[in-house]
Nucleic acid binder design. Structure first.
Lengths: 133, 133
DNA sequence: CTAAATGCAAAGCATTTGCAAATAT
DNA sequence: ATATTTGCAAATGCTTTGCATTTAG
């Protein structure tokens, strides 16, 4: 499925700016507002920050994008995909998606808290292989 | 150990404003900047928001406070204690601390990512017992 | 043709900074 | 006595809004 169809499926009109945003997100995986703005300026010299914000907000509303909050860092955005979690390098800030089976901690949390739980945000901090050595 | 000594142990001068902040945090557990400001205004009518920010920043630097980032909400602050995780009600926003044994997911994450991991942020969203019924 | 998106400038919040006066140690 | 904290006002930074123009469908 290409980017055009993906945007259409989320009720988002297909503009060149949006296509490029999707493209950057595919390549980067995760990006914050400012870096996204910088990445777009070559291709769209007249692009406005307001447009970035409007697009990010619109795309998040349509669940096409997800916002990821990382301790002590700016929020980053990613294309919405099946639930997953994040590992981030404290040195170089590389962010990696990880698939984890969290049924174990969900069970613990439910029995301790008596909350029902339907969403989980997990961000693990450490050093990536490159920065370890 | 009382609040005075706790502040001193973190190289923070003991002012009435700070004592009250600690007191509120003890009682609330978690609070955001604005609510903290509102809670302090009765006791300190002339209190400035700048003072709140300066104190929060100073106390975080000294590791006396910790910042907690919650998806789609304002950051909240808590007194630093041994590592724990958070469960939050999507309806009434009640935040509960939970102690979880996360060795299982840490092992998964390490073997998938090859990152070393030294810090973990987990926020689980759901409904608290009151809001379920 | 109509509704939505873009880009600009202005407005609105949130947070920080500089500085003089007050306070803690 | 000295260094830190407070509170104010101003400055900065981040995000949103309004509006005229352009673009997508």
């Amino acid at each position: 499925m290409n980017h055009i169809v993906e945007l259409q499926n989320h009720n988002l009109k297909v503009t060149p700016q949006r296509l490029e945003i999707v493209d950057i997100l595919y390549k980067n995986g995760h990006i914050n507002v400012d870096d996204l703005y910088k990445s777009l300026q070559n291709k769209f010299p007249s692009l406005s920050l307001a447009t970035i914000y409007k697009n990010i907000n619109r795309m998040c509303e349509q669940l096409f994008l997800s916002e990821v909050k990382i301790p002590y860092q700016k929020n980053v955005y990613e294309l919405t995909k099946k639930e997953h979690y994040h590992v981030i390098c404290s040195k170089c800030n590389a962010i990696m998606d990880v698939d984890l089976d969290i049924s174990n901690i969900l069970n613990q949390a439910k029995s301790i808290s008596n909350y029902s739980i339907n969403n989980s945000s997990i961000v693990l901090n450490g050093l990536c292989p490159k920065c370890i050595s």
